[in-house]
Design a protein around this nucleic acid. Structure first.
Lengths: 147, 147
DNA sequence: TGTTATATTCGGTATATGCCGAATATGTCA
DNA sequence: TGACATATTCGGCATATACCGAATATAACA
């Protein structure tokens, strides 16, 4: 693997790490971003210098996050992985967290007896809701443009 | 502490956990969201049933994340903590991650020789950039409305 | 400068997590 | 159904992290 590729992979991994993505899975994502064709577990394990079992676990983790897609190979048990093309849905998933946060905050307004606290929670709930809606709108515009 | 308050605190903590915020710090944030006045470390440790040193560490962690503000008490070494009112900046901080991601992807287009890969990386870079810009615009609108 | 109040650091322990290679399960084909 | 190819699970080990109470540092003030 070329040095510039290794560098890219590490850069991507560094960005994913703070989101709680384990190091192996993060590097795998960078690897798949660069891969021109879908990759099988043996190639992944060899190129990334990790155990095959680790490659398997990492790949399925990324699949759960919807960052990669799993492809079955016809007439074989072999499995290939490629980066998912619906990176939009991936961020949209994050968006649900904002909605959940807004919901909890809104519910919190019914917990306290302090007027100031209640107002603060309501304001924050509004904010997170507005941000979520704004992101959804951006997603829609993007999808429309791409179609 | 009332059961409904404890419930709220746990709900908030559950939402923060996946972002890598440690359990104690996450609960502390929920606690401070409900607190009508700024809280000192002894009260925090008592109400949350944690060691005072843990309270200190958790509070400073939240401060680093800009989720809470630290207040000095005049004529005393005592420190108080309250939730930060600039929840906007807090999300804006997250936004820098999107920008970084876009940058790395853009740089990646210069790493590969495959046309398809290059196009994919460029498209993703565009997307993350557009999303970041959209969020910044939302933030600006919110700030304008609140002023 | 000494005493007190308070926050912070430190060392130890328990817990969780990631990774590995070996063992196992499962799909494919003759 | 047997043999092979391949993915997955399992058990163990190493590493990181959170939390605690005790020890220490630091600010305030007499």
């Amino acid at each position: 693997m070329a040095a510039s590729e290794a560098r890219f992979i590490e850069d991507i991994a560094r960005l994913l790490l703070p989101w709680g993505v384990p190091s192996t899975a993060a590097r795998l994502y960078g690897y798949l971003l660069l891969s021109a064709e879908p990759a099988d577990l043996d190639r992944i394990a060899r190129d990334l210098e990790i155990g095959k079992s680790s490659a398997s676990v990492a790949a399925r983790l990324l699949e759960k996050y919807m960052l990669v897609r799993r492809l079955g190979v016809r007439g074989s048990k072999r499995v290939l992985y490629e980066v998912s093309d619906n990176y939009v849905d991936m961020l949209a998933e994050q968006n649900r967290l904002l909605q959940a946060l807004a919901d909890v905050l809104r519910a919190g307004t019914r917990v306290t007896r302090s007027r100031a606290t209640r107002d603060r929670l309501a304001e924050m709930a509004d904010f997170y809701l507005v941000v979520r809606q704004g992101m959804d709108a951006t997603f829609d515009r993007w999808r429309a443009k791409k179609r």
